[in-house]
Design a protein around this nucleic acid. Structure first.
Lengths: 219, 219
DNA sequence: ACAAATCAGTTGTTTTTACAACAGAATCGA
DNA sequence: TCGATTCTGTTGTAAAAACAACTGATTTGT
Protein backbone atom coordinates (compact mmCIF):
# COMPACT_ATOMS: atom_id res chain seq x y z
CA UNK A 1 0.00 0.00 0.00
CA UNK A 2 2.83 2.37 0.91
CA UNK A 3 3.95 2.08 -2.67
CA UNK A 4 0.95 4.07 -3.80
CA UNK A 5 1.22 6.94 -1.33
CA UNK A 6 2.84 9.20 -3.96
CA UNK A 7 -0.09 8.50 -6.31
CA UNK A 8 -2.61 9.24 -3.58
CA UNK A 9 -0.90 12.51 -2.74
CA UNK A 10 -1.63 13.71 -6.27
CA UNK A 11 -5.36 12.95 -6.05
CA UNK A 12 -8.04 15.51 -5.37
CA UNK A 13 -8.95 13.60 -2.25
CA UNK A 14 -5.57 14.05 -0.59
CA UNK A 15 -4.67 17.45 -2.05
CA UNK A 16 -2.58 19.41 0.41
CA UNK A 17 -1.84 16.42 2.62
CA UNK A 18 1.80 15.43 3.08
CA UNK A 19 3.46 12.07 2.50
CA UNK A 20 3.61 11.05 6.15
CA UNK A 21 0.07 12.16 6.82
CA UNK A 22 -1.31 10.15 3.92
CA UNK A 23 0.53 7.09 5.20
CA UNK A 24 -0.82 7.66 8.67
CA UNK A 25 -4.38 8.07 7.44
CA UNK A 26 -4.50 4.84 5.46
CA UNK A 27 -5.44 2.71 8.42
CA UNK A 28 -7.59 5.40 9.96
CA UNK A 29 -9.62 5.52 6.74
CA UNK A 30 -9.80 1.73 6.51
CA UNK A 31 -8.00 1.67 3.17
CA UNK A 32 -8.11 -1.67 1.38
CA UNK A 33 -6.09 -2.42 -1.73
CA UNK A 34 -7.31 -4.74 -4.49
CA UNK A 35 -5.79 -5.93 -7.76
CA UNK A 36 -7.77 -6.76 -10.87
CA UNK A 37 -6.68 -8.50 -14.04
CA UNK A 38 -7.69 -7.05 -17.36
CA UNK A 39 -11.36 -7.80 -17.96
CA UNK A 40 -12.26 -8.33 -14.30
CA UNK A 41 -15.10 -6.42 -12.67
CA UNK A 42 -14.25 -3.91 -9.96
CA UNK A 43 -17.89 -3.08 -9.26
CA UNK A 44 -21.01 -4.78 -10.52
CA UNK A 45 -24.46 -3.51 -11.30
CA UNK A 46 -26.79 -4.45 -8.44
CA UNK A 47 -24.13 -4.30 -5.72
CA UNK A 48 -24.33 -1.86 -2.84
CA UNK A 49 -21.41 0.40 -2.17
CA UNK A 50 -20.29 2.19 0.94
CA UNK A 51 -16.77 2.98 -0.20
CA UNK A 52 -15.14 5.64 -2.24
CA UNK A 53 -12.65 4.10 -4.61
CA UNK A 54 -9.42 5.54 -6.00
CA UNK A 55 -7.63 4.04 -9.00
CA UNK A 56 -3.89 3.91 -8.38
CA UNK A 57 -2.78 1.79 -11.32
CA UNK A 58 -4.29 0.81 -14.68
CA UNK A 59 -7.42 1.99 -16.44
CA UNK A 60 -11.11 1.31 -15.85
CA UNK A 61 -14.28 1.68 -17.85
CA UNK A 62 -17.69 2.56 -16.53
CA UNK A 63 -20.11 0.47 -18.54
CA UNK A 64 -23.83 0.25 -18.76
CA UNK A 65 -25.87 -2.60 -20.20
CA UNK A 66 -29.51 -1.92 -20.90
CA UNK A 67 -32.31 -4.43 -20.39
CA UNK A 68 -31.85 -5.83 -23.90
CA UNK A 69 -28.10 -6.24 -23.47
CA UNK A 70 -26.83 -3.27 -25.44
CA UNK A 71 -23.62 -2.08 -23.87
CA UNK A 72 -22.47 1.52 -23.72
CA UNK A 73 -19.30 2.92 -22.21
CA UNK A 74 -20.10 5.88 -20.04
CA UNK A 75 -16.58 6.91 -19.21
CA UNK A 76 -13.00 6.00 -18.57
CA UNK A 77 -11.22 6.29 -15.24
CA UNK A 78 -7.52 7.17 -15.19
CA UNK A 79 -4.95 6.78 -12.42
CA UNK A 80 -5.60 9.17 -9.55
CA UNK A 81 -9.30 9.55 -10.23
CA UNK A 82 -11.94 8.52 -7.75
CA UNK A 83 -15.31 6.89 -8.37
CA UNK A 84 -18.26 5.48 -6.51
CA UNK A 85 -18.82 8.69 -4.59
CA UNK A 86 -22.30 9.09 -6.10
CA UNK A 87 -23.51 5.80 -4.64
CA UNK A 88 -22.32 5.96 -1.06
CA UNK A 89 -25.37 7.66 0.39
CA UNK A 90 -27.39 5.14 2.41
CA UNK A 91 -30.54 5.86 0.40
CA UNK A 92 -28.87 5.66 -3.00
CA UNK A 93 -29.72 2.05 -3.73
CA UNK A 94 -27.78 -0.42 -5.81
CA UNK A 95 -25.19 0.42 -8.44
CA UNK A 96 -26.68 0.76 -11.91
CA UNK A 97 -23.40 0.44 -13.81
CA UNK A 98 -20.44 -1.90 -14.00
CA UNK A 99 -16.83 -0.84 -13.53
CA UNK A 100 -14.40 -3.03 -15.44
CA UNK A 101 -10.59 -3.14 -15.64
CA UNK A 102 -9.51 -2.69 -19.25
CA UNK A 103 -5.92 -3.38 -18.23
CA UNK A 104 -4.40 -4.87 -15.08
CA UNK A 105 -5.40 -2.40 -12.39
CA UNK A 106 -5.10 -1.60 -8.71
CA UNK A 107 -7.63 0.31 -6.65
CA UNK A 108 -7.92 1.41 -3.05
CA UNK A 109 -11.28 1.35 -1.26
CA UNK A 110 -11.99 3.87 1.51
CA UNK A 111 -14.95 3.47 3.83
CA UNK A 112 -16.99 6.63 3.43
CA UNK A 113 -18.13 6.60 7.03
CA UNK A 114 -14.54 6.52 8.22
CA UNK A 115 -13.84 9.47 5.96
CA UNK A 116 -16.80 11.49 7.18
CA UNK A 117 -16.44 10.66 10.84
CA UNK A 118 -13.40 12.56 12.00
CA UNK A 119 -11.43 10.32 14.27
CA UNK A 120 -9.02 11.06 17.10
CA UNK A 121 -6.60 13.96 16.86
CA UNK A 122 -4.11 11.51 15.38
CA UNK A 123 -5.04 12.64 11.89
CA UNK A 124 -4.94 16.38 11.81
CA UNK A 125 -5.49 16.28 8.11
CA UNK A 126 -8.68 14.34 8.26
CA UNK A 127 -10.74 17.53 8.07
CA UNK A 128 -8.79 18.52 4.97
CA UNK A 129 -9.73 15.26 3.26
CA UNK A 130 -13.38 15.83 4.07
CA UNK A 131 -13.17 19.30 2.57
CA UNK A 132 -11.40 18.00 -0.52
CA UNK A 133 -14.02 15.34 -1.06
CA UNK A 134 -16.84 17.78 -0.54
CA UNK A 135 -15.46 20.28 -2.98
CA UNK A 136 -14.69 17.55 -5.50
CA UNK A 137 -18.26 16.32 -5.58
CA UNK A 138 -19.58 19.84 -5.44
CA UNK A 139 -17.53 20.72 -8.51
CA UNK A 140 -18.65 17.60 -10.32
CA UNK A 141 -22.20 18.56 -9.50
CA UNK A 142 -21.78 22.00 -11.00
CA UNK A 143 -20.35 20.62 -14.22
CA UNK A 144 -23.18 18.12 -14.51
CA UNK A 145 -25.84 20.76 -13.98
CA UNK A 146 -24.27 22.98 -16.58
CA UNK A 147 -23.98 20.22 -19.14
CA UNK A 148 -27.54 19.19 -18.44
CA UNK A 149 -28.57 22.77 -19.11
CA UNK A 150 -27.18 22.56 -22.62
CA UNK A 151 -28.37 19.06 -23.30
CA UNK A 152 -31.94 19.81 -22.30
CA UNK A 153 -32.27 22.22 -25.22
CA UNK A 154 -34.15 20.74 -28.13
CA UNK A 155 -32.31 22.04 -31.18
CA UNK A 156 -28.65 22.07 -32.07
CA UNK A 157 -28.72 25.85 -32.33
CA UNK A 158 -30.18 26.21 -28.85
CA UNK A 159 -27.59 23.83 -27.45
CA UNK A 160 -24.83 25.87 -29.04
CA UNK A 161 -26.31 29.13 -27.78
CA UNK A 162 -26.54 27.69 -24.29
CA UNK A 163 -22.99 26.38 -24.37
CA UNK A 164 -21.43 29.47 -25.91
CA UNK A 165 -23.31 31.83 -23.60
CA UNK A 166 -21.98 29.93 -20.65
CA UNK A 167 -18.42 29.97 -21.90
CA UNK A 168 -18.75 33.74 -22.38
CA UNK A 169 -19.94 34.07 -18.79
CA UNK A 170 -17.10 31.91 -17.52
CA UNK A 171 -14.51 33.96 -19.36
CA UNK A 172 -16.37 37.15 -18.57
CA UNK A 173 -15.90 38.19 -22.18
CA UNK A 174 -17.73 37.86 -25.49
CA UNK A 175 -14.51 36.53 -27.01
CA UNK A 176 -13.03 33.27 -25.80
CA UNK A 177 -11.48 29.96 -26.78
CA UNK A 178 -13.23 26.67 -26.22
CA UNK A 179 -11.38 23.56 -25.02
CA UNK A 180 -12.88 21.31 -27.71
CA UNK A 181 -12.43 20.68 -31.39
CA UNK A 182 -15.60 20.28 -33.45
CA UNK A 183 -15.95 16.54 -32.95
CA UNK A 184 -15.42 16.85 -29.21
CA UNK A 185 -17.92 19.68 -28.94
CA UNK A 186 -20.45 17.66 -30.92
CA UNK A 187 -19.90 14.67 -28.62
CA UNK A 188 -20.18 16.90 -25.56
CA UNK A 189 -23.51 18.25 -26.74
CA UNK A 190 -24.64 14.88 -28.12
CA UNK A 191 -25.23 16.08 -31.66
CA UNK A 192 -23.92 15.18 -35.08
CA UNK A 193 -20.66 16.88 -35.97
CA UNK A 194 -21.52 17.85 -39.52
CA UNK A 195 -24.97 19.07 -38.57
CA UNK A 196 -23.39 21.14 -35.81
CA UNK A 197 -20.75 22.53 -38.12
CA UNK A 198 -23.52 23.46 -40.50
CA UNK A 199 -25.49 25.14 -37.75
CA UNK A 200 -22.47 27.13 -36.56
CA UNK A 201 -22.07 28.53 -40.04
CA UNK A 202 -25.75 29.41 -40.22
CA UNK A 203 -25.41 31.22 -36.91
CA UNK A 204 -22.49 33.14 -38.35
CA UNK A 205 -24.56 34.00 -41.42
CA UNK A 206 -27.34 35.18 -39.13
CA UNK A 207 -24.89 37.53 -37.45
CA UNK A 208 -25.02 35.84 -34.05
CA UNK A 209 -21.41 34.78 -33.75
CA UNK A 210 -17.98 34.86 -35.32
CA UNK A 211 -15.46 32.09 -35.02
CA UNK A 212 -12.13 30.84 -36.19
CA UNK A 213 -11.04 27.40 -35.08
CA UNK A 214 -11.43 27.31 -31.30
CA UNK A 215 -11.88 31.05 -30.96
CA UNK A 216 -15.43 32.33 -30.71
CA UNK A 217 -16.97 35.77 -30.47
CA UNK A 218 -20.59 36.48 -29.54
CA UNK A 219 -22.18 39.50 -31.25
CA UNK B 1 -33.97 33.08 13.44
CA UNK B 2 -35.28 30.79 16.21
CA UNK B 3 -38.63 30.96 14.47
CA UNK B 4 -37.28 28.86 11.62
CA UNK B 5 -35.67 26.09 13.65
CA UNK B 6 -38.64 23.77 13.05
CA UNK B 7 -38.27 24.33 9.30
CA UNK B 8 -34.54 23.66 9.45
CA UNK B 9 -35.09 20.44 11.37
CA UNK B 10 -37.07 19.09 8.43
CA UNK B 11 -34.31 19.82 5.92
CA UNK B 12 -31.90 17.22 4.59
CA UNK B 13 -29.06 19.24 6.05
CA UNK B 14 -30.25 18.91 9.64
CA UNK B 15 -31.87 15.48 9.39
CA UNK B 16 -31.54 13.65 12.68
CA UNK B 17 -30.56 16.76 14.64
CA UNK B 18 -32.80 17.81 17.50
CA UNK B 19 -34.43 21.17 18.15
CA UNK B 20 -31.98 22.33 20.77
CA UNK B 21 -28.99 21.19 18.77
CA UNK B 22 -30.11 23.07 15.67
CA UNK B 23 -30.54 26.20 17.74
CA UNK B 24 -27.11 25.76 19.24
CA UNK B 25 -25.48 25.24 15.87
CA UNK B 26 -26.86 28.38 14.26
CA UNK B 27 -24.14 30.61 15.58
CA UNK B 28 -21.48 27.96 15.24
CA UNK B 29 -22.33 27.67 11.53
CA UNK B 30 -22.45 31.45 11.11
CA UNK B 31 -26.09 31.38 10.06
CA UNK B 32 -27.34 34.67 8.58
CA UNK B 33 -30.99 35.32 7.80
CA UNK B 34 -32.14 37.51 4.92
CA UNK B 35 -35.54 38.59 3.65
CA UNK B 36 -36.38 39.26 0.02
CA UNK B 37 -39.44 40.88 -1.48
CA UNK B 38 -41.06 39.28 -4.49
CA UNK B 39 -38.91 39.95 -7.54
CA UNK B 40 -35.69 40.62 -5.63
CA UNK B 41 -32.51 38.73 -6.44
CA UNK B 42 -31.12 36.34 -3.83
CA UNK B 43 -28.06 35.50 -5.91
CA UNK B 44 -26.81 37.09 -9.09
CA UNK B 45 -24.90 35.73 -12.03
CA UNK B 46 -21.25 36.75 -11.72
CA UNK B 47 -21.17 36.76 -7.92
CA UNK B 48 -18.95 34.42 -5.94
CA UNK B 49 -20.49 32.25 -3.31
CA UNK B 50 -19.02 30.59 -0.25
CA UNK B 51 -22.28 29.82 1.49
CA UNK B 52 -24.84 27.10 1.31
CA UNK B 53 -28.31 28.57 1.37
CA UNK B 54 -31.54 27.14 2.74
CA UNK B 55 -34.95 28.54 1.86
CA UNK B 56 -37.15 28.77 4.96
CA UNK B 57 -40.06 30.78 3.59
CA UNK B 58 -41.41 31.60 0.13
CA UNK B 59 -40.44 30.31 -3.29
CA UNK B 60 -37.43 30.96 -5.53
CA UNK B 61 -36.64 30.46 -9.18
CA UNK B 62 -33.27 29.59 -10.64
CA UNK B 63 -33.06 31.56 -13.86
CA UNK B 64 -30.59 31.72 -16.67
CA UNK B 65 -30.23 34.48 -19.23
CA UNK B 66 -28.18 33.72 -22.30
CA UNK B 67 -25.90 36.19 -24.04
CA UNK B 68 -28.74 37.48 -26.20
CA UNK B 69 -31.06 37.95 -23.23
CA UNK B 70 -33.30 34.93 -23.62
CA UNK B 71 -34.42 33.84 -20.17
CA UNK B 72 -35.06 30.28 -19.12
CA UNK B 73 -36.20 28.99 -15.76
CA UNK B 74 -34.04 26.09 -14.69
CA UNK B 75 -35.89 25.16 -11.57
CA UNK B 76 -37.95 26.13 -8.59
CA UNK B 77 -36.84 26.00 -4.98
CA UNK B 78 -39.37 25.19 -2.28
CA UNK B 79 -39.23 25.71 1.47
CA UNK B 80 -36.67 23.44 3.12
CA UNK B 81 -34.56 22.98 0.00
CA UNK B 82 -30.95 24.06 -0.17
CA UNK B 83 -29.07 25.60 -3.05
CA UNK B 84 -25.69 27.06 -3.90
CA UNK B 85 -23.88 23.91 -2.84
CA UNK B 86 -22.49 23.39 -6.36
CA UNK B 87 -20.67 26.73 -6.31
CA UNK B 88 -18.96 26.72 -2.95
CA UNK B 89 -15.75 25.04 -4.05
CA UNK B 90 -12.93 27.61 -4.18
CA UNK B 91 -12.16 26.76 -7.80
CA UNK B 92 -15.74 26.84 -9.00
CA UNK B 93 -15.71 30.41 -10.26
CA UNK B 94 -18.61 32.82 -10.42
CA UNK B 95 -22.28 31.91 -10.40
CA UNK B 96 -23.72 31.41 -13.87
CA UNK B 97 -27.37 31.72 -12.88
CA UNK B 98 -29.63 34.08 -10.99
CA UNK B 99 -31.80 33.10 -8.06
CA UNK B 100 -34.93 35.25 -7.76
CA UNK B 101 -37.73 35.39 -5.20
CA UNK B 102 -41.06 34.84 -6.91
CA UNK B 103 -42.85 35.61 -3.69
CA UNK B 104 -41.70 37.23 -0.45
CA UNK B 105 -39.04 34.88 0.82
CA UNK B 106 -36.63 34.22 3.64
CA UNK B 107 -33.35 32.37 3.37
CA UNK B 108 -30.56 31.41 5.72
CA UNK B 109 -26.93 31.50 4.59
CA UNK B 110 -24.42 29.07 6.12
CA UNK B 111 -20.69 29.52 5.62
CA UNK B 112 -19.50 26.31 4.02
CA UNK B 113 -16.13 26.46 5.73
CA UNK B 114 -17.81 26.64 9.09
CA UNK B 115 -19.86 23.62 8.15
CA UNK B 116 -16.88 21.59 6.97
CA UNK B 117 -14.53 22.56 9.77
CA UNK B 118 -15.82 20.77 12.80
CA UNK B 119 -15.63 23.13 15.73
CA UNK B 120 -15.26 22.48 19.43
CA UNK B 121 -17.12 19.67 21.12
CA UNK B 122 -19.94 22.14 21.78
CA UNK B 123 -21.79 20.84 18.73
CA UNK B 124 -21.84 17.10 18.91
CA UNK B 125 -24.10 17.03 15.89
CA UNK B 126 -21.77 18.93 13.65
CA UNK B 127 -20.41 15.70 12.16
CA UNK B 128 -23.95 14.61 11.42
CA UNK B 129 -24.57 17.79 9.43
CA UNK B 130 -21.41 17.20 7.42
CA UNK B 131 -22.57 13.68 6.65
CA UNK B 132 -26.03 14.89 5.69
CA UNK B 133 -24.62 17.48 3.34
CA UNK B 134 -22.23 15.01 1.81
CA UNK B 135 -24.91 12.43 1.16
CA UNK B 136 -27.32 15.04 -0.14
CA UNK B 137 -24.94 16.30 -2.75
CA UNK B 138 -23.75 12.80 -3.53
CA UNK B 139 -27.33 11.76 -4.19
CA UNK B 140 -27.91 14.80 -6.36
CA UNK B 141 -24.83 13.81 -8.29
CA UNK B 142 -26.13 10.33 -8.90
CA UNK B 143 -29.47 11.62 -10.18
CA UNK B 144 -27.73 14.05 -12.49
CA UNK B 145 -25.44 11.39 -13.94
CA UNK B 146 -28.38 9.10 -14.53
CA UNK B 147 -30.45 11.76 -16.22
CA UNK B 148 -27.47 12.77 -18.33
CA UNK B 149 -27.17 9.15 -19.39
CA UNK B 150 -30.65 9.24 -20.85
CA UNK B 151 -30.38 12.70 -22.32
CA UNK B 152 -27.17 11.92 -24.13
CA UNK B 153 -28.96 9.39 -26.32
CA UNK B 154 -29.75 10.73 -29.73
CA UNK B 155 -33.19 9.37 -30.51
CA UNK B 156 -36.40 9.33 -28.51
CA UNK B 157 -36.45 5.56 -28.62
CA UNK B 158 -32.94 5.29 -27.21
CA UNK B 159 -33.80 7.76 -24.48
CA UNK B 160 -36.82 5.70 -23.54
CA UNK B 161 -34.82 2.48 -23.59
CA UNK B 162 -32.20 4.05 -21.37
CA UNK B 163 -34.76 5.40 -18.93
CA UNK B 164 -36.90 2.29 -18.78
CA UNK B 165 -33.87 -0.01 -18.41
CA UNK B 166 -32.73 2.03 -15.47
CA UNK B 167 -36.12 1.98 -13.81
CA UNK B 168 -36.15 -1.80 -14.23
CA UNK B 169 -32.75 -2.01 -12.55
CA UNK B 170 -33.87 0.25 -9.73
CA UNK B 171 -36.96 -1.84 -9.08
CA UNK B 172 -35.04 -5.02 -9.73
CA UNK B 173 -37.90 -6.19 -11.89
CA UNK B 174 -39.00 -6.02 -15.51
CA UNK B 175 -42.37 -4.72 -14.33
CA UNK B 176 -42.60 -1.39 -12.54
CA UNK B 177 -44.44 1.90 -12.26
CA UNK B 178 -42.88 5.18 -13.22
CA UNK B 179 -43.37 8.37 -11.20
CA UNK B 180 -44.29 10.48 -14.23
CA UNK B 181 -47.24 10.94 -16.49
CA UNK B 182 -46.54 11.23 -20.22
CA UNK B 183 -46.02 14.98 -20.27
CA UNK B 184 -43.69 14.84 -17.27
CA UNK B 185 -41.69 11.99 -18.76
CA UNK B 186 -41.38 13.90 -22.03
CA UNK B 187 -40.19 16.98 -20.14
CA UNK B 188 -37.75 14.88 -18.12
CA UNK B 189 -36.24 13.42 -21.29
CA UNK B 190 -36.49 16.71 -23.16
CA UNK B 191 -38.59 15.38 -26.02
CA UNK B 192 -41.98 16.16 -27.47
CA UNK B 193 -44.84 14.46 -25.71
CA UNK B 194 -46.78 13.35 -28.76
CA UNK B 195 -43.67 12.12 -30.52
CA UNK B 196 -42.75 10.17 -27.39
CA UNK B 197 -46.23 8.74 -27.06
CA UNK B 198 -45.97 7.68 -30.67
CA UNK B 199 -42.60 6.08 -30.11
CA UNK B 200 -43.82 4.19 -27.04
CA UNK B 201 -46.56 2.65 -29.14
CA UNK B 202 -44.09 1.71 -31.86
CA UNK B 203 -41.93 0.04 -29.24
CA UNK B 204 -44.95 -1.88 -28.07
CA UNK B 205 -45.72 -2.89 -31.67
CA UNK B 206 -42.09 -4.03 -32.02
CA UNK B 207 -42.54 -6.28 -29.02
CA UNK B 208 -40.07 -4.45 -26.78
CA UNK B 209 -42.40 -3.32 -24.04
CA UNK B 210 -45.90 -3.43 -22.69
CA UNK B 211 -47.49 -0.61 -20.78
CA UNK B 212 -50.68 0.63 -19.26
CA UNK B 213 -50.72 4.12 -17.79
CA UNK B 214 -47.75 4.36 -15.47
CA UNK B 215 -47.13 0.64 -15.40
CA UNK B 216 -44.45 -0.69 -17.73
CA UNK B 217 -43.14 -4.14 -18.53
CA UNK B 218 -39.93 -4.86 -20.45
CA UNK B 219 -39.97 -7.95 -22.68
C1' DA C 1 9.70 18.22 -47.13
C1' DC C 2 6.35 15.05 -48.10
C1' DA C 3 2.98 11.58 -47.27
C1' DA C 4 -0.53 10.43 -44.08
C1' DA C 5 -3.79 11.63 -40.93
C1' DT C 6 -6.82 14.78 -38.86
C1' DC C 7 -10.01 18.46 -39.05
C1' DA C 8 -13.67 21.61 -40.67
C1' DG C 9 -17.00 22.69 -43.84
C1' DT C 10 -20.42 21.50 -47.62
C1' DT C 11 -24.10 19.15 -49.93
C1' DG C 12 -27.92 15.94 -50.87
C1' DT C 13 -30.76 12.27 -49.04
C1' DT C 14 -33.16 9.84 -45.54
C1' DT C 15 -34.89 9.55 -41.11
C1' DT C 16 -36.58 11.50 -37.12
C1' DT C 17 -38.63 14.94 -34.45
C1' DA C 18 -41.42 18.84 -33.44
C1' DC C 19 -45.64 20.91 -33.91
C1' DA C 20 -50.51 21.43 -34.33
C1' DA C 21 -54.87 19.77 -34.14
C1' DC C 22 -58.03 16.53 -32.78
C1' DA C 23 -60.60 12.41 -30.50
C1' DG C 24 -61.66 9.18 -27.05
C1' DA C 25 -60.91 7.81 -22.25
C1' DA C 26 -60.22 8.83 -17.63
C1' DT C 27 -60.43 11.89 -13.84
C1' DC C 28 -62.07 15.62 -11.11
C1' DG C 29 -65.21 18.83 -9.03
C1' DA C 30 -69.40 20.90 -8.05
C1' DT D 1 -74.23 12.62 -11.85
C1' DC D 2 -72.92 15.67 -15.36
C1' DG D 3 -69.91 18.94 -17.33
C1' DA D 4 -65.28 20.36 -17.50
C1' DT D 5 -60.70 19.28 -17.46
C1' DT D 6 -56.80 16.42 -18.00
C1' DC D 7 -54.50 12.71 -20.09
C1' DT D 8 -53.11 9.74 -23.84
C1' DG D 9 -52.85 8.32 -28.38
C1' DT D 10 -53.24 9.41 -33.43
C1' DT D 11 -52.34 11.68 -37.69
C1' DG D 12 -50.39 14.81 -41.21
C1' DT D 13 -47.14 18.30 -42.22
C1' DA D 14 -43.17 21.04 -41.78
C1' DA D 15 -38.76 21.48 -39.84
C1' DA D 16 -34.63 19.66 -38.21
C1' DA D 17 -31.20 16.34 -37.51
C1' DA D 18 -28.65 12.31 -38.75
C1' DC D 19 -26.06 10.21 -42.06
C1' DA D 20 -22.90 9.54 -45.82
C1' DA D 21 -19.75 11.08 -48.87
C1' DC D 22 -16.59 14.31 -50.39
C1' DT D 23 -13.31 18.53 -50.57
C1' DG D 24 -9.80 21.44 -49.20
C1' DA D 25 -7.00 23.00 -45.35
C1' DT D 26 -4.16 22.08 -41.57
C1' DT D 27 -1.35 19.30 -38.71
C1' DT D 28 1.69 15.50 -37.69
C1' DG D 29 5.33 12.32 -38.03
C1' DT D 30 9.19 10.54 -40.26
Amino acid sequence: MKKYVPVLMKTQMFAGVGNDEVSAMLSCLDARLYNYKKGEYVLRQGEHLSDIVVLVEGTLHIQNDDYWGNRSILGQIAVGEMFGEAYVAPESGALLNDVVAIEDSTVIFFDVRRILTTCSSACRFHAMVVQNMFFAISGKNRKLVQKLGHMSKRSTREKLISYLSEEAKKHNSATFNIPFNRQQLADFLSVDRSAMSNELCKMRDDGLIEFDKNSFKLL
